[in-house]
């Protein structure tokens, strides 16, 4: 049934958007910098829902935050967060999730392709985030990279590895719901 499928995708996309909102608060303490789970859920949205519904999920998440509902990190929503210094990372989620969904495609088993998709997504994400951070603060490129990219790369690698494992385990469960 097409209608039922669509309702299921709406609910799943909302769920992943809510996971992104909650992911800003969920951190796993490993090493000096705790690993925040938000972008892992963004990647999972791309992997599990595909490019189109992944984009919808992130888009609605950003819209909800931009309207001032408290879904961004730090609790305070509002358009100020998108205009603010870390806004580039938020906007960057849009192309990132689309690319992750597009590259990983409908593959169910190929884990290498998923990892490649997420690496491309990460590159796009940092391209948006670091450029915006540099424009707003007026720092030099090298300083901006030290503040806005290098400290997170190890965590990102771990998150990509974890997301690939989780996506492989979850796809059959979600796919089963969708094919019914």
């Amino acid at each position: 049934m097409k209608n039922s499928n669509q309702l299921r995708m709406i609910v799943f996309a909302s769920l992943l958007a809510a996971l992104m909102a909650a992911g800003a608060y969920l951190a796993i303490p490993i090493g000096p910098v705790p690993i925040v789970l938000q972008n892992m859920f963004v990647f999972l949205a791309g992997l599990l829902l595909g490019s189109r519904w992944g984009l919808a999920s992130v888009g609605v998440y950003l819209l909800t935050g931009a309207c001032g509902l408290p879904v961004f990190a730090g609790g305070l929503g509002g358009i100020g967060r998108i205009v603010g210094p870390t806004g580039g990372y938020l906007i960057g989620y849009l192309p990132a999730v689309f690319i992750v969904g597009y590259i990983s495609g409908k593959s169910t088993t190929r884990i290498g392709r998923d990892v490649l998709a997420m690496i491309c997504g990460t590159i796009v994400l940092y391209a948006c985030g670091v450029t915006w951070l540099k424009t707003l603060t007026g720092m030099t490129w090298s300083k901006t990279l030290i503040v806005g990219m290098y400290p997170f790369l190890v965590g990102d690698a771990l998150k990509i590895a974890a997301a690939a494992v989780i996506a492989r385990a979850l796809r059959p469960i979600i796919g089963k719901g969708l094919r019914q």
């Binding site: 709406i10 958007a17 919808a56 609605v60 998440y61």
Partner: peptide, 8 residues
């Protein structure tokens, strides 16, 4: 979807 996010 916005309503669902806030509930979830």
């Amino acid at each position: 979807m916005m309503g669902l996010i806030l509930r979830f």
